[in-house]
């Protein structure tokens, strides 16, 4: 079953009709019909299979009967011979011969039924596979068509605006642009952070120098109150006051 050949032929037929779907509705109907035909064939094969299996069962029942008879007649022969009734044994033996011939025939028929059943089962399985593949192909074509229609609709939206249908190329361009923008934002932010950093450093040094109030403002305050102290207490006390030292020097 050349599904691919059929689909490719369908493609060829429709590929150059601008704006139309790949496979037209007619072609789709043909494929659908093909699935239905295959399904009908499969049902027929299953029907045949059921019939043959019934016939096989009947043949098998008959065989079982004959085999039971064979056992029964064999016992009769043994019994008749044991009682020295050779004439009766002979009569039963003739019947047994017919039964054994029947058994051979039935066995052969059952073997033939089994072969047919095997073949029908194989072809049913094959038909099922074909149907499944054909259905998958149809599903793929249908899904592809829906997507294609959606893309065509998108393209139509762009058509009036003079813009092209957006592709990965546009997305790549957009990604690059956004990366550039982000990089620019980042460098501005970094610069701002650096400025704030510089200012912070200056503030710290100003505070250290006692020009603006900084972290050590408590010490500065204390020093301010104790500034007159050196004059009264002498140099020993000044050394102990630490920060007041520089203030004292400046004053001196």
């Amino acid at each position: 079953m050349a599904i691919w050949t059929k689909i490719i032929t369908l493609f060829r037929g429709a590929a150059h009709e601008a704006g139309t779907a790949v496979v037209d509705a007619n072609a789709m109907r043909i494929l659908d019909q093909e699935v239905r035909d295959a399904q009908t064939a499969l049902l027929r094969a299953r029907d045949d299979l059921a019939k043959i299996m019934a016939q096989r069962k009947m043949a098998n029942d008959k065989l079982a009967d004959k085999k039971a008879k064979q056992l029964e007649y064999s016992n009769y022969i043994r019994e008749a011979l044991a009682r020295d009734n050779r004439g009766l044994a002979q009569e039963v033996a003739t019947k047994l011969a017919t039964i054994e011939a029947d058994i051979a025939t039935e066995t052969k028929i059952i073997g033939e039924f089994d072969a047919s059943i095997g073949k029908l089962q194989t072809s049913s399985r094959q038909a099922e596979t074909v149907i499944q593949r054909l259905k998958q192909q149809i599903d793929t074509v249908k899904a592809t068509e829906s997507v294609q229609r959606a893309q065509a609709a998108l393209a139509a939206q762009h058509a009036g605006t003079g813009a092209k249908l957006g592709t990965a190329l546009d997305s790549l361009e957009r990604i690059k642009q956004r990366q550039t923008e982000r990089a620019a934002q980042l460098s501005v932010a970094e610069e701002m952070a650096a400025h704030t950093g510089e200012d912070g450093d200056l503030q710290r040094r100003l505070a250290q120098a006692g020009i603006v109030p900084g972290e050590s403002s408590a010490d500065s305050i204390l020093a301010r109150f104790e500034t007159p102290a050196p004059k009264a207490l002498g140099h020993d006390s000044v050394a102990q006051l630490g920060h007041a030292d520089s203030v004292a020097n400046k004053n001196g």
Partner: peptide
């Protein structure tokens, strides 16, 4: 799009 046994 989904169709029968396939997602595309």
């Amino acid at each position: 799009a989904v169709s029968g046994e396939q997602i595309f």
